[in-house]
Simulated scan of single mutants.
Amino acid sequence: MTADAPQPRSLVTTGGVSIGGAPVSYTAILAALVAVLAFIPASIVVGGMGGGWPLHDVIHPLLGLLLGPIAGPIASVVGIVIGNVIAPYTNLGPWSPLMGAMSAFAVGMVMYPKRSLWYVPWIITLAANLIYLWQSLSFGIGFWLWLSNVFTVDVALILIAIPQIRNWAIDQIRNGAASLSLYGAYFVVFFFGSTAGIQLNWVPSFATNPWPAEVWPPLVFIIFAERVVFTAVGALVAFALIAAIRRSPIAKAKLAGY
């Protein structure tokens, strides 16, 4: 623990209702935040009839860090479901809760207290990646076009699987003082969570509503830009928010990763 980093506080429940080590109130507040952010379009949806990509995609990895791998995904799913109803113009379809749930779950497992269970979401994401390849080839999408679209996901898979990078990021988030290195650590972990979520969402979405080959080329840049920008914004929010929480009387959820 560095001299500048305050000692973390663990949440001790005394009869209160909790979900996965996090108070229901924490989960409800963050689910409500997800729902509110559904009102704000953050990007475009190719072929989406003028719809927009919801801004809440930015914060799903943060929910996994704040609440852990159980309550985090639950808050994401509840928030997305509510957001799909109240803000239909950013509704990404029936499979969209998978995106938020997987993003939060991936970060929660990477940052699991006292150990790292990164390989669980990593294996799930890799399996979804390969299933997506089979789906693409079966639909007549060539290997290289598929690879160009999953390139961002594959980069994240490689980064988080490198022990030196992963362990450095985990240590910085748990013990590091405010610095550019800490921001970079948030980015690495959140980048994995963000891309894992989008990859898991692609598989059932493509199975139920496959998009033709002519739509794929524009997605190459859009996917890369979205994941990088969304991750960068989410990491910035985490950088400020976690620093504030550590200096406040707010107790940390039992399975929180920071």
Rank of each mutant, 00 (worst) to 15 (best):
A196Y: 05
P217Y: 05
L63H: 14
V77K: 00
A42N: 08
P121W: 02
G72D: 12
V77A: 09
I223M: 15
Q172M: 15
T152M: 05
M49S: 06
L37F: 00
A42I: 01
Y112P: 05
V188W: 10
V120I: 11
V237K: 14
V220E: 08
G51H: 12
D57R: 13
H56W: 15
A127T: 13
P23E: 13
T13L: 09
A3W: 14
T208D: 11
A240F: 10
N209K: 13
A225V: 14
T125S: 15
P73R: 05
F191G: 09
L255K: 00
G16M: 10
F139C: 06
A42E: 03
G68Q: 12
N91W: 05
S138N: 07
N201L: 14
A196R: 01
A256G: 11
V110G: 04
S43N: 12
S179D: 06
V229S: 04
T208M: 10
P218N: 01
I40R: 05
F39C: 06
V188C: 11
V17N: 08
T27N: 00
A185M: 13
I223Q: 12
A251S: 03
I170S: 02
Y112C: 04
Y186C: 13
A128N: 15
T27V: 12
A244Y: 12
G193R: 07
L157G: 03
G48Q: 07
Y258N: 09
L126H: 06
P61L: 11
R174P: 05
Q172D: 10
L145A: 01
P218R: 08
N84R: 07
I86N: 02
P8T: 02
N91Q: 06
N167H: 11
M109R: 08
Y112V: 03
A169H: 13
Q7R: 14
V36L: 15
A127L: 07
A251E: 11
A87E: 07
G20P: 01
S138G: 08
G142W: 15
G79N: 02
I86E: 02
H60W: 10
T90L: 01
S148D: 07
Y258R: 11
N175I: 03
G184N: 07
D57Q: 15
I40N: 02
G47K: 07
S43H: 13
I250G: 00
G50I: 06
V228Q: 04
L98A: 09
S179V: 10
G48I: 04
F192D: 09
V81D: 15
A31F: 01
S138Y: 08
L157A: 12
V34L: 02
Y258P: 11
S194W: 07
F239I: 11
L255T: 00
A232V: 03
P8W: 06
G83R: 01
G48E: 14
I74H: 04
I170K: 03
Q135H: 10
P41F: 13
L63D: 13
N201K: 03
G176H: 06
V12Y: 13
P6T: 08
M102R: 02
I160L: 07
G93F: 15
L30R: 00
D171K: 08
G108A: 04
V220D: 06
A207C: 10
